[in-house]
Design a protein around this nucleic acid. Sequence first.
DNA 1: GCTCGATGTGCGATTAACGCACGTATGGAG
DNA 2: CTCCATACGTGCGTTAATCGCACATCGAGC
Lengths: 261, 261
Amino acid sequence: MSDRTFAATLAKGLDVLACFEERAGVQTMPEVVERSGFDRATVRRLCLTLEASGYLVREGRGFRLAPRVLALAGGYLADLDAGRRVQPVLREAAEALDMEVALATRDRMQAIYVDRAAPASARVTLGLSVGSTLPLLHTAVGRMLLARSAPDIVEAALARPPVRHTETSETDPATLRSAIETARDQGYCIARNAFEPGAAGVAVPVGSLGDRPFVLATTATVNRFDDPKALDEVLNALRHASMVVGRIGQRAEGDTASGRG
Amino acid sequence: MSDRTFAATLAKGLDVLACFEERAGVQTMPEVVERSGFDRATVRRLCLTLEASGYLVREGRGFRLAPRVLALAGGYLADLDAGRRVQPVLREAAEALDMEVALATRDRMQAIYVDRAAPASARVTLGLSVGSTLPLLHTAVGRMLLARSAPDIVEAALARPPVRHTETSETDPATLRSAIETARDQGYCIARNAFEPGAAGVAVPVGSLGDRPFVLATTATVNRFDDPKALDEVLNALRHASMVVGRIGQRAEGDTASGRG
DNA sequence: GCTCGATGTGCGATTAACGCACGTATGGAG
DNA sequence: CTCCATACGTGCGTTAATCGCACATCGAGC
């Protein structure tokens, strides 16, 4: 049946492309066939088209993501004016706290890093970068995002089969729901040992773009926030950064033809 | 005529998506129609499909890139293990030099930032971020990339109509060609006032991934490299970082199922 | 009230996409 | 060396997805 509002081939091609974002590295066509469920001939055609369009590059008998995909991200970040507006703020906060600081939002049922900064004294890195994804239920970032998302999103997140990331990962929906509500009420979220053992995160809200909430978050070893005074310091710094980054959704809408083309 | 190796609809959809990476912000359908040259009904179907797939979000009467595109970039960066392997190195170099340092590669006929770091004392920022693009001919990054690219790429770059970014932008093909050859011969590239007035850049080669060269680059005010000793210092730091980042193409290929899904 | 541009829709013609089936190349095992 | 399993490339008939014109509606601006 033909549909005037949906291009099936495009959607399939994007599905194929998405196969490469989860399992990074080289993927062979049979692997993509397995993962996507499409016919072999279809996968072949889509992969070749993605290659021709520059999104995939051949490597041996498989394909790999091309830097082309960065250009799309660059468009999104340019839209936010990330390089000018958020990077300096994140860097300052990271330096002040001597902790990694990140700006994140929600993509489907995951939290996703939009930008991040780490202090010069980079003791430990979790290997996260722009575009890295985190679970919504078991991180401070994720819970703070859920606290600012529509109820159906929260329900959808809670409805998913619970995953234990650490030994103390909370899996009880009621407890998780209350953690989200607490985050909403107190205006920040803290999570310990929920995703990465020995790690803890703190997140505070920033503005939003459309109906997409943004949060600022920081990560440290689990006992970093034990002292209430230390937690206060972190919260203050994050909130200050949040103010400076400002209302993301409310930048000048008029200046379309900015920058050098 | 049907083609077993090409899905036209997918390619068109990607073209539509690409319309959003150049001119950031909200685009209305008529604008996309104009830019892409496709039929109005086609653009409509493709935009709606891109929205349904999560790559675009509606805003008012137009569309905007969704954070979904960051996930693709995240896949690419995870492939490089950017968060763990290159971020710390860039940060250290940026701190040591007190200058912005970036890892870049080539996407089509542009240089593109893969990752970057800025020192804590972020005096001036050019507003560049992951995915930002720069011209190949008029930047140190670009020329160093060309110096390591296949000859046909160089010719293609030189064949394009020359663009003047600054008053002293070089437009003579012969001079540009020799600048690229110089970069190849001496193993680094320096450019002053070529793209941004008052700015200068230095770039050195890093490994490559497949046939894609990578370079490390740094930017500063134009007189920062006047003193030969200062230039030496910068080159040493960049080369050191280049060594540490190492052969990007030669990381362990076996560890596919790494990380937590 | 009129005009112009944007948007949504109906529908017929076209042809692009699909996927089965066949032949080939590769590469590992015995 | 042979055999087998797997991946790859291709031909082609069928199907229906895509295309793009045409019409209708809506809202803003003059």
